[in-house]
Structures are given as C-alpha cells and as structure tokens.
Design a protein around this nucleic acid. Structure first.
Lengths: 148, 148
DNA sequence: TATTGTTATACTCTATAACTATA
DNA sequence: TATAGTTATAGAGTATAACAATA
C-alpha cells in the first residue's frame, strides 16, 4: 500500500511529503548565506535585525510589548533599544496615557534601513529562475496551499 | 510581456518566482518554532547543535577542520569542543600521524543525541499532509530541480 | 501595592594575543 | 621557522536582582 515498486522506494504519501520537505529545507539552507550577507552588509547583528523588524515610524511600541515579542526580559529589551538608539535608528517618546511607559519608534534612517533589510531578506533567489515559467506557476499554486 | 491582465497583477516569470519564494520562505518561518523546540527539548544551544552535526563516532575531525567548518577561530573551536566534552558527548583522541593535532569523536551518548536532533530537525511538518498525494508528487518533482 | 522601565551586576559566548608542543 | 592547539584575557550579548517613578 505504501510501496509502488520493488526497488525499496516508498512512495506513500508520508514518504513523498518527506522528500518534499527535504528539498524545500535544503533549498532554504542553500540560500541562507545570501540572507546572512544582507545583514552583514547593513552592519546589523541578528538581534538588531529582529528589533528593526518589530518597529516602524508610525506605531509606537512599549518596552513591555517588545520584550514579549523578542522573548527576552525587560532589561535586554532596554539594552537592545539603547543600541538602536545609539545607531540613530530608533527613539523613545513618552507614552501619552501612562507616564511610566515609553513608546519606541523608528527614526527616518531606521525606516530606510529596515526597508533595505526587508527587501534583501525577501529577495527572490535567482536559482528559482532555473525552472521554466509553467513550472513556477504550478509551484506557486501548490505552495499557496501551505500555511505561512 | 510581463503582464497578462489589466488588474495590475504581474505574472511575468520573475513575479511568479517571487510569489513562489514568498510562500516557501513563509512556510519555513511558520515551521521554525517547531525546530527551535527540538533543540530546546534536547537542551542544546544553536552552537552545540551545529557542533554536534559536524561530528560522528567513527571519523575523527581535527580542531583546525572544525574551526574552518564552523567559521570561527581556533580558540572558539577549543571552547566549543570543551563544552561538548563536559556534556559527555564528545572526546579528543591523539592524532595517529601528527602528535600536535587531536581528533574529535562523538561518544556513544553524543551519537544518540545527534541522531535525535537530526531526526527532529528533518521531521516532515504535518502541514504538508494537507496537500493530496498527487500534489505532493508534483511538488517533489519540481523542488528536486532546485539546488540544495 | 502592583507595574513600567532602568541600572548594577554577573554569566555566557566569541575573539585576539600570547604561549606550549610538536613538525 | 611554521603549524596545531590551548590558555589568558577582553569584549559583546543576555539574564537576574535591586531600584526609581508612576499607576
């Protein structure tokens, strides 16, 4: 039932899914150095990159929210925002309702750096163009069925 | 040539490739917490996990080789192997030809932990089973054309 | 009295430089 | 003289605990 040949190749659904996963994960790892290079080129550590990604220029985030999103403690969030601030990419402003709290925003240079980072991280790996257009269409349709 | 409709949807090859990538990358990020949990459950830091992955019980690796593979300097490799050794997962043995060098092997517990780690990291995400068998076959064929 | 955030401090991780022992 | 690896030490990054301001 799970085998469709005598050569030991198991083509049951789970086995095919495993092969799909192996290829997909392998491709992700194959393209990873390129994404690492994007951060290196912008001079961002992984922590700074994650921090930058959580912020923008319009919506203020409290330290508490950021610590939760980064799954770190409050003092680490303070330290991380301090570093973005020293880099000129973020700034703290007083919270309009709660004078204990601060709201963190990206500065204009921070917004620009964030955009470059997001663009680089999401850039289509050129290896995909090794497939022809019809294959890519099929792939698109199938992959769109997966959660993300 | 790059547009096949008037609604602003660009279905040129590059645009389709971009959508493919977005889905694929999104799925990989979606499944990432599960892989992080595998390491957390085994009590491994990312560095330890990478180190474990480079070693086995039969083929000894020199410190120099390991530092190159981990793209770290020699002292960091020493420190990393020290830690695996303290965890009882690796051991140094003298190099048979060069008395300056050491060969690093996994111990039996190290081999076992490595196996569990690899199994967990490579485990097929159950979300893939949301596709039917034929779709998975198609996906397998197309993804196999990508480098990994 | 509880909560937001910071500061003081310690511990982990990684790197640079000096050193030991071979080659 | 060059190489393999370790140790001493310094620097980032992250956490715990004590604290200040406000709710």
């Amino acid at each position: 039932m799970a085998d469709d040949s005598d050569d030991g190749t198991d083509s049951g659904k789970a086995a095919v899914a495993e092969q799909v996963w192996r290829s997909m994960f392998g491709f992700l790892m194959h393209t990873r150095p390129r994404r690492d290079a994007v951060l290196a080129h912008l001079g961002l550590t992984p922590t700074e990159a994650k921090a930058l990604d959580s912020l923008d220029g319009e919506t203020g985030r409290t330290m508490k929210e950021l610590a939760a999103e980064w799954t770190c403690d409050a003092s680490t969030a303070t330290w991380t925002v301090d570093r973005l601030e020293r880099l000129g990419m973020a700034e703290r402003r007083p919270h309009p309702q709660d004078r204990r709290a601060r709201l963190v925003f990206l500065t204009e240079p921070g917004v620009t750096t964030r955009e470059e980072m997001v663009r680089g991280m999401n850039a289509t790996p050129p290896e995909l163009l090794g497939l022809d257009t019809e294959e890519l269409h099929t792939l698109r349709t199938l992959l769109a069925k997966l959660p993300h």
